[in-house]
Simulated scan of single mutants.
Amino acid sequence: MRPRLASLLTAAVLALLPGTARADATYPDPQPLTGEQIIHDPTVIRLESGGYVAYSTGGIIGARTSEDRTHWDDAGNAFTTPPSWWYAYNDTGDPWAPDLSYRAGRYWLYYAVSSWGTNHSAIGVATSPTGLPGTWTDHGKVFGSERTDSWNAIDPAVIRADGRLWMSFGSYWTGIRMVELDPRTGKAVEGATVHHLATRPDAPYAVEGPYIVEHGGRYYLFASYDTCCAGADSTYRIRVGRSTSVTGPYVDSTGEPLLEGGGDLLLAGHGRYVGTGGESIFKDRGRDVLAYHYYDAEDGGTPKLGLNTLTWTKNGWPDLLRGRGRP
């Protein structure tokens, strides 16, 4: 028997044995990392000065830094103390799900303040000349939601499109929304229309954490579906749709609208990498990189940083680079 055939047959037999772990053939594992890997809802950027910084839910927006995108160090928090206005939305001054970008010579950090299970929520913004922790100046509330609204103002993500600035956001409460921002202040324009981008057919409309990128003249909406924050029991997965307009409508590769529950599955849990979601995308040397968290089933469900290079098919749909190493 040829060695390759023997190897395939052995793998097939092992896959049928109870309790036997096997690599998933559909989804690639994240890039191997070292150092401080614990993170939740990561946003990552390659700094103008070189190196990388990642911010996340936890602490007063937890920070990680890296020189090579492989080894990560704990860098404390974005802020030394919570801005006082945060306490109107929770008792702990605890921010969630930041979004980091660079424009007009400054770094912009968007984040959410809320409490579990309520849409009494707000999105805030801060700026920094370097993007590093401890250098942020907070500028207050960008946009909010109340219990009478049908949306939840958390999980912000900002994109420039057609000379205008937009922010997608949303979690449950009928799904993903978008408003236009004033590029000078970084805050929602007065009386901004709240566009509806994606939802699920039935309550509780479990879709959140949007992120939009432009590629090949189209806009791609990535979002996290199903259950977050349950450790190894989490069912988070990343789906995607696209549109010729940043405000939608978004559809998947079969033409099903994301407003009707559509969305191509890009990444789901596999092996030890459970509940993949909380995603964002950043540019690194001309390549798109998907950042997300997963819950490590071999480490008590601890949330950790996942990074995969994002590729694009001939039909213009996103895919993930196979193989564990960096390109």
Rank of each mutant, 00 (worst) to 15 (best):
Y52P: 07
G144T: 13
D29C: 05
I212D: 05
P257V: 09
R285Q: 14
D68H: 00
Y89L: 12
F79P: 12
H40M: 11
D226K: 12
D162W: 06
P156S: 03
Y219P: 01
I123K: 12
G124M: 08
S84K: 06
A23S: 13
L320C: 09
R200G: 00
G131F: 05
T227W: 13
E260G: 04
H215E: 10
G186Y: 08
G209L: 01
A153T: 01
Y292Q: 04
Y111G: 06
G175Q: 09
A21T: 14
G217W: 08
A188N: 08
Y292T: 04
A188R: 11
G105D: 13
A157T: 10
P133M: 02
V113F: 02
R200N: 01
H195E: 10
V240L: 05
A223N: 12
V207C: 13
I159Y: 01
K187Q: 09
G191E: 08
I45P: 01
T130Y: 07
W72G: 00
T247V: 14
Q37K: 15
G301L: 06
L9Q: 14
Y89W: 14
T199N: 10
T247W: 12
V179K: 07
T148R: 13
G241S: 10
A21P: 15
S145Y: 06
S145Q: 07
G306V: 05
T193F: 05
V207W: 02
T313Q: 01
A23N: 08
E208A: 09
R218C: 07
L267D: 07
H71M: 03
D24Q: 05
A153Q: 04
G50A: 00
L267K: 02
H195V: 08
M167G: 04
A161I: 14
R272C: 02
N308S: 01
Y273H: 12
D24K: 07
T92D: 13
E256L: 15
A188M: 11
A230T: 15
T311K: 00
E208R: 09
H71Y: 05
Y107P: 04
G105L: 13
L258P: 05
T313M: 01
P18W: 04
I45V: 14
A112S: 15
L307I: 01
L8Y: 11
E214A: 10
S224K: 06
Y225D: 12
Y236I: 03
K187I: 00
G248I: 14
W312P: 00
E48C: 04
G306T: 06
A198D: 03
A25Y: 02
R103T: 14
G277R: 03
D155S: 02
S115G: 13
R106C: 10
W151F: 15
R103H: 15
G131I: 06
S101Q: 05
S7R: 12
A97I: 12
A12V: 12
Y211A: 09
E279I: 00
Y273R: 05
V142Y: 06
S49H: 04
A126F: 07
S253V: 11
I38Q: 10
S84W: 02
F79L: 15
T80A: 15
V158N: 08
E180W: 05
L8H: 10
A297Q: 12
V213P: 00
T247D: 15
G140L: 08
R2S: 15
R160Q: 13
Y27S: 02
D155E: 00
T137L: 11
H71G: 08
R326Y: 08
D73M: 10
P42D: 00
Y110I: 03
L165C: 11
V13M: 11
T311E: 09
Y295C: 10
C229R: 07
R64I: 03
N308Q: 07
K283L: 08
E36Q: 11
